[in-house]
Amino acid sequence: MRVTPAIALRLTTLAVGALVMITPFLYMVSTSFKAQQYVLKVPPQFIPDPATLANYERVLTKGNFGHFFLNSVLVAGTSTVIAVFLSAMLAYGFARYRFPAREWLFRLLLLGLMIPAMMLIIPQFILAKWLGLIDSLPGLVVFYVAGNLALNTFLLRGFFEALPAELDDAMQIDGANDWRRFLDLALPLGRPALATATIFTFLATWDEYAWALTSITTPENQTLPIAIALMQGPKGTQWGLVFAASIIAIVPVIAVFLTFQRHFVQGLTSGAVKG
């Protein structure tokens, strides 16, 4: 690739922006390698001196971090798959069909994005108790799926609406039923949007704290955000420990991001529409 002035300018802009974006993050990484007495010192110390692996060692060996990690992977993974699939169905239904009360139902869905989640906690807890869904991982999954439908449906609906109707019509003439058209046409073409939805849903369920805290009581069922919150205390917090745990907790989210963002380069750019 030839480096033109335009490309050089673009790269410089990106690099400067990226530097601003990651400086606080780098600081967090650096802190995770500090012993408690060097944490949050003024003036700030960017290169840990002396550096220590003790925080990571403690996170990984003391307590049940691995177990909570596994719980989180199971819950976030399952919730994401189900939520994205159900949202895609919802979005396809809203985008491709006309039926009575369509906009009314859609607005009801949007309302779910607007009410502060905190206010739903108590009614949800009572409901979960009644349905036998408290203190269990499946109970978390059910609420995480329900809680992520609105945003995903809103996001995906726009994309499905933008898909060219010609292809749909062509498949219909070929005799494909609604379900086939959804699976074989809409989902593959909507890959960039589905990838985005997957990335967001995984992050949201991975990081969820309030509901997990409320519904989970048995330590064996706790997820990572609770384990990390327990490292903070009213009378002193070991920040190096919290940061080390937070950095380990970021790894799966980045992995999901890297896996799914690749789908962006495919999409509609190939020009499948023409013809």
Binding site: M89, L90, F94, F99, G112, P123, V142, G147, A150
Partner: peptide, 30 residues
């Protein structure tokens, strides 16, 4: 005519009504 959209929408919507809308109504009642 309405069977297809209903089938696409029903699973998600049902879940949403039970776990989000119902608690929402409770919050309003509160």
């Amino acid at each position: 005519r309405y069977l297809a959209p209903a089938l696409f929408i029903a699973p998600g919507m049902l879940l949403y009504l039970v776990f989000i809308v119902y608690p929402m109504l409770q919050a309003v009642a509160m």
